[in-house]
Design a protein around this nucleic acid. Sequence first.
DNA 1: TGTGCCGGGAC
DNA 2: GTCCCGGCACA
Length: 386
Amino acid sequence: MEGGGEGEPVQLLQFVLPFGCLMTPLVVPGLSLCFFPPRVSHLSPSRCRKADAAVEMDEMVAAMVLTSLSCSPVVQSPPAGESASRVACDPWKESGDVSDSGSSTTSGHWSGGSDISTPSPPHPAGSPKYSIEALSSPQVDDGFETDSDPFLLDEPAPRKRKNSVKVMYKCLWPSCGKVLRSIVGIKRHVKTQHLGDSADSDQRKREEDFYYTEVQVKEEPAPEAAAAASPTSASAPIIIQQALAKPEALLVEQPALEPALASSALSQSAPSSFWHIQADHAYQVSWWHLPGTGHLPKSCRSISWATATSTLPSLSPVSPACVSPWSFWGVGLDWEIRGACLCSHSPLQMKVRGEAKKCRKVYGIEHRDQWCTACRWKKACQRFLD
DNA sequence: TGTGCCGGGAC
DNA sequence: GTCCCGGCACA
């Protein structure tokens, strides 16, 4: 938390989430971060634009929040103006019951309880409310079903789009590239064609989301059917404004991830919030594509975005290298950056302990015989060098 | 409190 | 040189 003095103004910061949408955390001195929930119902750039328009509104909301937030972190049984403070302070409890009357014409996505002192989501990491799944998967019934969800429930309404820009969904499965018109369709496609229809449904659902991306298609007045019908056809009148930063790279890299592997990888990851990767599924960008990630000390790669209560120590420049874009999976939006992350750029900090696994950690005391000699002798570990 | 490892001692 | 461990710094 920066700033920190009492009575100091709330800072509004905005993150661009990997899927390209803004998220506005409320930084209240003395409190943990309270995130406005992402103003996006699905991973749509266009809706993000809409959300952009709502930024101002959010600031107003924030102002209201401030006024109503004269309350301490603890004092939170807001009698009046409650919607605003709720909004700010507990986006996690997105029950969908209220779209706060007071504040807004904005998306009104959030409502909430009053638990300001515990900004972390009430859900375990396994079922993060703001996981991609939550954002995109309509069938998940975990209470995340607010208004957004005409969009969630079906494809975006074309009539809202000017200039005949249409949103379509492109399969990211290696060498597939199928483009479909609807989320449902693409999900079905991914599920049936690539993931298989079998068990493990929960995991599958997440993967479905992972394997498609939203693309904007400028439709020529001409036959639109062609676009959907023959997505791979080069002659199709599609101008894809690919949202992904590096779709090719993605397609190249992704094959390396067996679905199973991918799913496990997904569960470890983190939002690269600080890189304004403009992508619907930018978190899909393999993190080794991020600048400088290839040669990092393990200590940096092991940055934990675990369930956390801690605030972002410094919202500014955290190296891209230190953030795994996978993190969205499984952790929701509450995250923690370990200070050690910053170590990679400071030789002095390189020696920060505890990030790398050591023989002791790896093998355990009971298998001391498998430790490297140095470890056995209580010297600096030679096997798992930092 | 657990862990990593420096410094130093015994052999 | 090898092996061991007291003790400190750190998370």
